[in-house]
Amino acid sequence: MKKESVPVRNSLLLLLTATIWGVAFVAQSVSMDYIGGFTFNAVRNIIGAIALLPVIWGLGKTRSASEQTPSDRKTLITGGICCGILLCLASNFQQFGIKYTTVGKAGFITACYIIIVPVIGIFLKKKCSPFIWIAVILSLCGLYLLCLTPGEGFAIGKGELLVLICAVLFSLHILVIDHFSPLVDGVKMSCIQFLVCGILSGLPALLFESPDLAGILAAKVPILYAGVMSCGVAYTLQIVGQKGMNPTVASLILSLESCISVLAGWLILGQNLSGREIFGCVLMFGAIILAQLPQKNPAA
């Protein structure tokens, strides 16, 4: 009974993560009117790390410090640094790729990590049932209907290439989290990854963008949402939610970010959904449900 409740709880945490990320797409776009991409990613990630310090302090009061060995600390720092480097690369490739392509194409290509994760997983000996592969194909069809308009060409240009690299990096990020999350404290690892990502994004920001306080303050609302909610809350929920989850199933749930961003545009900004887009959403939700169905899995 308890064993079955864990995947359900984790799935809900990942769904909440996708929801926060979907809504945060608006903040990510608006911020570029005031500050550069590296500056945005640097500030939002530093805020994300700071936002987690009270949580770590609160959890630390309820746990014994002697429980953590030097080996555990080394694993935690290694995991945090690896996740931080991949997060930095992926988020910056995405941020600049969006400048050179349409939002629809960027959303579709980014969410292609749902097919990249199981493909990479094959080489890491992570098995997937036929149900999950069917769910992946359904999701890709849904994303195509949702993100790309009929008759729109799909030539690979500079923007598409940058976002495709971003999708590969996010796939690696999911698999690295899958490796480290069962071994370490998820909140602490999340804090370390934001600090690493913020510092690494800050270096090119200082070299190429000349960030100023006025621009940062002008973008304070999207930065705070992206920092506290998208980074501090959502990426931590991802690390906690992925514990014990099949990384392909996790990537399918997280891919709902694209679907939720369209729904958020409809509900918050009054942007209407076409029948094609509604059908795309239905296919994606169907894929997630299919991936969650109990399956015979004799060889785990």
Rank of each mutant, 00 (worst) to 15 (best):
L267F: 13
D212Q: 12
V176K: 15
P298D: 14
E67T: 04
G157F: 05
L183T: 08
E257L: 03
C82G: 00
C259W: 12
N297K: 15
L195Y: 04
G265W: 09
P182H: 10
F123G: 13
S190D: 00
I35C: 06
V43G: 02
G215E: 06
E277Y: 04
M189T: 01
A234G: 06
G142I: 03
F170Q: 03
C147N: 14
L164H: 13
L256R: 05
V196I: 15
A90I: 13
I50T: 00
V117C: 13
S129L: 05
G280Q: 07
L203K: 07
G37P: 03
A287Y: 06
K61P: 00
A155E: 15
G153F: 11
I137K: 08
I174T: 00
H173G: 07
T17M: 02
K188L: 05
H179E: 09
Q94T: 00
G215F: 08
G280H: 08
S181K: 09
R73L: 14
G244M: 04
V282Y: 08
R63V: 04
G153E: 11
V187F: 05
V30S: 04
L293D: 05
I56R: 01
P182C: 11
A214W: 04
V233Y: 02
S71D: 10
C141E: 04
K126W: 04
C259V: 15
C128H: 10
S210G: 08
A264R: 12
P150M: 07
T248G: 09
V55K: 15
V233P: 03
E152V: 11
E257R: 05
R44V: 05
S5F: 03
S258M: 14
L252P: 12
P222S: 00
I177H: 14
S31G: 08
L254M: 15
L12G: 04
F180L: 03
G198F: 00
I278D: 02
L14E: 10
I56F: 00
L162M: 14
V55T: 14
L224V: 11
W266A: 13
L273K: 08
I109A: 15
T236Y: 08
A291F: 11
S251V: 01
G104P: 06
I260Y: 15
S29I: 05
L148M: 12
L203N: 08
L140I: 13
R276E: 00
V30H: 05
Q242V: 03
M284Q: 15
A65L: 07
S258R: 07
G97F: 06
G157C: 06
C82P: 02
I174E: 01
Q94N: 09
A214E: 10
L145A: 10
R276L: 04
T69Y: 02
A65K: 10
S251A: 14
K296C: 09
I46Q: 07
I20Y: 04
I216D: 04
I109G: 12
G153H: 12
G286V: 00
C112Y: 11
S129A: 06
M284S: 13
P7V: 02
E209Y: 01
A234K: 07
C231A: 13
P130D: 04
V176T: 15
G80N: 07
G227N: 05
I288P: 08
I278P: 02
G48E: 07
V119W: 06
Y113S: 13
A205K: 03
S129V: 05
V136D: 04
I50F: 13
G157L: 03
I260T: 05
G153C: 11
K188C: 07
